[in-house]
Simulated scan of single mutants.
Amino acid sequence: MSDSSKAARNKHLALHGFTQFAAGNIDVLRTLVHEDFVEHSPGNPSGREAFIAFIAEARVARARLDLKRVIADDDHVVMHYHMATDDDPRGVAVVDIWRLVDGEIVEHWDVVQPVPEAAEVPHGMF
């Protein structure tokens, strides 16, 4: 498989998973996350079952997720999105980096930044 077709396949898998998760289907993670999944975000557990249990109770599972861009390169997919809740309408800007192997997510990193007042970001966060 060429790098470009691998990137396209991984992008498709990540987009499908994101769309399903954003619609409230947490179980889609069982089809995407590898059993020995490694998490690099502080406070988030590694391992498929522990990670899914954690995410199911996390704010992200109840938030509105507005995907802004997706970048895929070989084994990595990067997703940039706005996560907001009724309690926090400004929300946070999130960048997730997923590493996929054979159609499964094996590693994850993220960067999360609170969205400031519009006047503080003249060109917008997204």
Rank of each mutant, 00 (worst) to 15 (best):
A61W: 06
L65A: 12
V94R: 08
R62Y: 05
A63F: 09
G91C: 10
I55M: 10
W98L: 10
E57G: 14
A93V: 05
R69D: 14
G47E: 00
A58K: 04
A58N: 13
R90C: 05
V77A: 05
V92M: 04
A84N: 11
D66F: 11
R69W: 08
G47P: 00
R62T: 14
A61T: 09
K68T: 11
G47R: 03
A72E: 04
E49N: 10
D86T: 09
R64T: 15
A84H: 11
V101I: 14
A93E: 11
V60D: 02
V92W: 04
A53W: 02
A58W: 12
R48C: 02
D87P: 00
K68M: 12
A53N: 06
W98N: 02
A58P: 02
A50V: 00
H80G: 01
A63D: 12
M79L: 15
V94S: 09
A58C: 10
W98I: 04
D74F: 05
S46P: 07
A53P: 00
A84M: 05
V92S: 11
M83Q: 14
V95M: 13
A56V: 08
R59F: 02
A58L: 06
A63P: 12
M79D: 01
S46E: 07
F54H: 15
I52W: 04
D87C: 01
V94M: 13
R59K: 12
V77E: 02
R90T: 08
R69Q: 14
W98A: 07
R99W: 01
D96V: 00
M79V: 08
D75L: 01
V60N: 06
A63Q: 10
I52R: 05
A50Y: 02
V92N: 06
M83L: 13
V60L: 12
L65D: 06
A93P: 00
A93Y: 05
W98V: 07
D87A: 15
V78G: 09
I55V: 14
D73S: 14
D87Q: 12
L65R: 09
V101H: 14
D75A: 12
L100G: 02
